[in-house]
Nucleic acid binder design. Sequence first.
RNA 1: GGAGAGGUCGCAUAGUUGGUCUAGUGCGCUGCACUCGAAAUGCAGUAUAGGGGCAACUCUAUCGAGGGUUCGAAUCCCUCCCUCUCCGCCA
Length: 437
Amino acid sequence: MIDIQFVRDNPELVTEKASQKGYKTDVPAMLQADTQRRQLLTEIENLRAQRNDLSASLRKAKPTPEQIEQGKQLKDKLANLEQKLMPVEEQFNRLLRAVPNMPLADVPVGTTEDENVVVKTVGEPAKFSFTPRHDHEIGEMRDLLDKERAAKISGSRFTYIKGGLVRLQFAIVQFVMSTLGNEEILQKLIDENNILDENGNKLSAKPFTPVLPPAMLRTEPYVASARLNASEVTYKLEDDDLWLNASAEHTLCTMYWNEILPAEMFPIRYIGYSTSFRREAGTYGKDMEGIFRMHQFDKLEMEVFSTSETGLAEHKLLIAIQEYLMQQLGLPYRVVQKCTADIGKPNARGIDIDCWFPGQGKYRETHTADYMTDYQSRDLKTRIRREGSVELVHTNDATAFALGRTMKAIMENYQTADARIVIPEVLRPYMGGQAEI
RNA sequence: GGAGAGGUCGCAUAGUUGGUCUAGUGCGCUGCACUCGAAAUGCAGUAUAGGGGCAACUCUAUCGAGGGUUCGAAUCCCUCCCUCUCCGCCA
């Protein structure tokens, strides 16, 4: 949720920035409801104060009939005003929640994802002396993927991952855990990229803590996270008021829901590993081959809680980590700065990393990095207690690796003419030295 | 799934025949006093959100959540959520 005070102070700016993101807002109506709401609230609170006075004076003596009559009148007036307040409050909340987070100044303005800006391209797509195969061809030839039987059992967009590919997935997990747990690597990335916070201080190199979060969450925190706005992506378990998470980020960002945390805890950096579930409704016919777009996939997700002045720097660190991980795996990629239309409602800034897929002969999204400023934490009520003040935390999330897509990328980029897959050097120690599958 | 016990201001607790609870006490924390210094002791303060005010300050709400009864609810009633214990089932 956006800061109401900011909207009061900058109504035109809010309308303009919201429309750049493709969101229709009615700021004048919202502010009108805000004024009306505050007037009613003042009246109600005055009546409540009178009621409190009356009942305090009745603590010692028995109430007289006159006093009870007076109390009844107050009660009626209050009920009347509270009835009036309810629809105003509803209107106000609805309009306020429709306002997206404000994009940062360097976010390119655009109306579709075609206006995203490629910031840089790293690595050369490999040249093959043969026609490179898709992941599904390799997977079928080598008995590493079985989508047909998965379809029989679970339907479309499911797969059995088998054999060496399974070992590859866990090798990637181990590799990421050791990289993000390594303070020296983080320090090197901070130094090389000169990542400074708003006060010009170098960012902390505190390592990430691995987390295996729950894969389901209840409606209330999910709604507060501002991530449950698309029933087309989320599975609901009707009998239990539980949703299957669509990313570890959903159970990580909600972790400190309704909490005030001591300043010493910050920054809080987590690397979560979770199976993620997506309905993919409305994507019929899109990416049906291979394992690019599944209903179920495992994902390593970074989540950072920070102070406001380090939030943007944390965002930059996350992107630096994403690039480092891609470079370590030797995968060609490009960094894309998402335009206002594509960054998403709670985002102030968003970056995608697109990996080169030889089978398709194009770059496809494998990573995203989202910076929400305090938009997400205002509803989540996740706060930091600092010297003399309590402030909202800033949240960041970013993909470390979506494992399905990453394995597809390795299969296609590291394939040989006879459909074997060479294992990237850095992963071999986690596979007992094995050099190919 | 069955039976029971609970959810109170950072932590621990008091409070459930409705009004002295705008929530007491202890611990912790902050300040002051005492002391050469410390411990101990004493005194004072110590939540969050929202409204009003330049400010000092002040008003309102919050005793798991929501609704109800009442002049008045932590306390009574209803619904829901969560935690714990025992039994059953189970990786």
